[in-house]
Amino acid sequence: MKNCLTCGHSQEDGKFCGKCGTPLESAALEQAATINNMTDYQNQPQPQAGQAVQETSHSSDQIELLKKQSKLYFNHFLEQLKKPSAGFNVEIAWKNNLTSMIIYVLITALSVFLLIKSFTSRTFGLFESYGPSIIQVILYVSLFLILLMAINVLAIFLTSKLFSENLSFTNVISKIGSYYALPIAVTILSILFGLLKSYTYSMIMLYIGFVLAIGIIPIFVMVKLLSNTSKIIDNFYSFIFYLVVTAILTSIIFSFIIDSTIGDYLSFLI
């Protein structure tokens, strides 16, 4: 029988609490041991010139620690995929949730690059060499997605500060990131369809993942927060405030992108 260290819930199997989503004793201890081992390794003095054997051993230990940490994240990802709301109030997993958001940004940028490459090769075959590189696409798409995520985090943070719970930026990121397993899975499907040259389905999956990550998930988190507690005014007006803040910040970002990026492309074509 395993006991949850956070809420006291008991269950026979599983690495995460079925009630609150906190890692159970074994998983929590394993994760804590992994983090402590990585910290101990980082605090060790650097090897001298004549310590090639020790350096090789330390590198091997670090690889093993990374493998173990990756395994813990994969288990966390599967739990997110099965029960996203279970980790909504589990602040101990905020680093894993932030990792999910970073992974989504990177695989979305990769999916966009595959689609752009296929489009330029079929439509502008003669000018394929002038298309953007993978580094450029990843940089621009990642920056674009990070800005939109930052808008969502800031809007939820301001709304929660004024009308709901007193949350920090870390809390907001954790709550949003706890639902990112599904957008990641959908975007991975987009990449697979792109590799199979099924570009229509690839674009559909990419669009669904984007709508989930940037639109539906932040709105769902905001509604859930407002349903818990609300200060000063009615929840409906709090939600309207969130939408207005999001719309204003998004319009600023889009106007900046249109003025800079699209303007550069038009001047290049002319």
Rank of each mutant, 00 (worst) to 15 (best):
V186D: 04
I253R: 09
S70D: 05
F77C: 10
F169W: 08
C4H: 06
P45V: 03
N166T: 14
E165T: 01
L212R: 01
I248P: 01
A150S: 15
I188Y: 07
K95V: 11
S70P: 02
G50P: 09
V244K: 06
T22L: 12
I191C: 08
S227P: 08
L145A: 00
T229N: 07
S227Q: 13
S60N: 15
N89I: 00
C17N: 05
Q42H: 13
Y73L: 13
V141W: 04
K68F: 04
I134T: 06
V244H: 05
K2S: 11
N36F: 14
A52E: 15
N228I: 11
M205Y: 09
T34M: 14
L225A: 02
D40A: 12
I63S: 12
S238M: 00
S100M: 10
A27V: 08
A213D: 03
G177W: 08
L249V: 01
L110Q: 01
N43E: 15
E128R: 14
E91Q: 13
T200K: 08
A49I: 05
N97R: 06
V244L: 14
V137Q: 07
G125C: 07
D13M: 13
F74Q: 10
T229H: 10
C7N: 02
A49H: 05
I232P: 02
L24S: 03
I191N: 09
N228D: 12
T99V: 10
L65I: 02
N228M: 07
S129V: 14
I217T: 01
Y104F: 15
L196M: 09
F239L: 02
L162E: 03
L158V: 02
T108Q: 07
Y104V: 00
I134M: 15
Y237M: 06
F77H: 09
N96Q: 14
K19D: 06
K161I: 00
L114Y: 13
I35Y: 12
Q54R: 14
M101A: 09
N3M: 12
T22R: 04
I191F: 03
L29P: 00
N36M: 12
D259G: 09
F254C: 04
S111Q: 01
M203I: 09
I214H: 10
V223N: 08
G87Y: 02
Q11M: 07
Q46T: 15
L5D: 15
L65H: 04
F254S: 08
L225Q: 11
I252W: 10
I240H: 03
M203F: 12
G209Q: 00
I138L: 12
D61K: 15
D61Q: 14
E165M: 03
K67W: 09
F239S: 00
G209L: 03
L189C: 11
G18H: 13
T39P: 05
V90I: 09
E30N: 13
K82S: 12
W94Q: 07
P45A: 04
K95Y: 13
G209W: 00
L196F: 12
G125Q: 14
T123A: 13
A93W: 02
Q51A: 06
G263D: 07
V244T: 08
L266F: 13
F88S: 10
F144L: 09
A213N: 05
I248H: 05
R122V: 11
I258S: 12
V244G: 01
L196R: 11
E128T: 06
C4A: 11
G14H: 04
I138S: 10
F210H: 04
A86K: 03
